[in-house]
Structure formats: C-alpha cells, structure tokens
C-alpha cells in the first residue's frame, strides 16, 4: 500500500512494484486525461508533472512517486478557469483529435514552472518530445507564442 498525491489529493493505492505511474493513474485512479500511446517514452502523450517537472508517466514506476506531488491535466484548471496554456490551446485551435493535447499542455506547464517568463522558443522546445499525428504543430507553436506574450506581459 502506498499513497500517491495527485492534484493535491492523497490516494492510497495497492500496486504491484512493476506497474507504471501512467497505468495507475488511468486504471486505478480513473484519471484518464493522461493518455497511453506508446508505453515506451517515444511520444509524450502521458506527460505529467512530478514536483513541477514534466515527465513521461510511462517511464516512471508508481512506487517511485510516493513522496512527490503528481499533477495531471485534470488538476490544472480551477473550476471553469483554464490556465494560460489551456486557454491558448483553445484560442489557437492547437488540437484536433485531442489525444496528444494533455501531454503537450503539461510539457508547456512544466517549462513555465521552471521559467515563468519562458518565451515562444522555450515553450516550443518543451514540446519537442510530444508527437501530434494530426499535425497541429503550427497551432501549437502559435499557442506557445500566445502564452509567452501573456506571461511576459504579466511579468512586465
């Protein structure tokens, strides 16, 4: 038995040591916003924040995460209020099927936790490990630009 802290909530779970965080989030905790695509760290769709750092949850064992703060896409918005990254993805139509979207967003959120004034290039760099098969990349770059404009405006 271990306790995972996900989106600020403690979740006691019993898991086999071999099970990955992605699978425990999706199957045991019902947090299916984190997507399973490749299970081998190729695509970024399962990205979550672990103590503010973006990680592929398919490459992390659940038992490693007991003492850490886990954040998933479900934990970002406060009620109806989207984060700047989420708002930018909607405004720029930076998604089509939406399957890669949670991972893209968390990768950018991770970059912003490290550097709240991250510019478009840095936010784009943050999603280089997130594949989008629909090919929404140009709009994802536009979303990065919109976030950067907002955050630097806020900082200035």
């Amino acid at each position: 038995m271990l306790t995972l802290t996900v989106n600020g909530q403690p979740h006691p779970v019993a898991v086999e040591p071999r099970r990955i965080l992605l699978d425990v989030l999706r199957r045991d905790l019902g947090l299916t916003g984190t997507k399973e695509v490749c299970e081998m760290g190729n695509c970024g769709a399962c990205t979550v924040l672990l103590d503010d750092e973006a990680v592929y949850s398919c490459l992390v064992l659940a038992v490693e995460c007991e003492a850490q703060e886990i954040e998933t896409v479900e934990g970002l918005a406060r009620g109806q209020e989207l984060t700047a990254v989420q708002e930018a993805f909607v405004a720029c139509d930076a998604l089509q099927c939406g399957f890669c979207t949670p991972g893209q967003i968390l990768s950018m959120e991770g970059a912003l936790r490290r550097r709240p004034d991250a510019d478009e290039a840095a936010l784009t760099e943050a999603v280089t490990g997130n594949l989008c098969r629909c090919g929404a990349y140009r709009n994802i770059v536009a979303a990065a630009g919109r976030v950067a404009a907002t955050s630097s405006g806020g900082a200035g």
């Binding site: 947090l31 299916t32 916003g33 984190t34 998933t72 896409v73 479900e74 970002l76 918005a77 989207l82 989420q86 993805f89 909607v90 405004a91 139509d93 998604l95 939406g98 979207t101 949670p102 967003i105």
Partner: peptide
Amino acid sequence: PRREAPAKVTGG
C-alpha cells in the same frame, strides 16, 4: 472555436 476544445484541454 472548436466546441470540444475545453473538454480536450482539461482531460474531460
């Protein structure tokens, strides 16, 4: 705007 975009950016 794409109607399901809010659901897709929040994991819903």
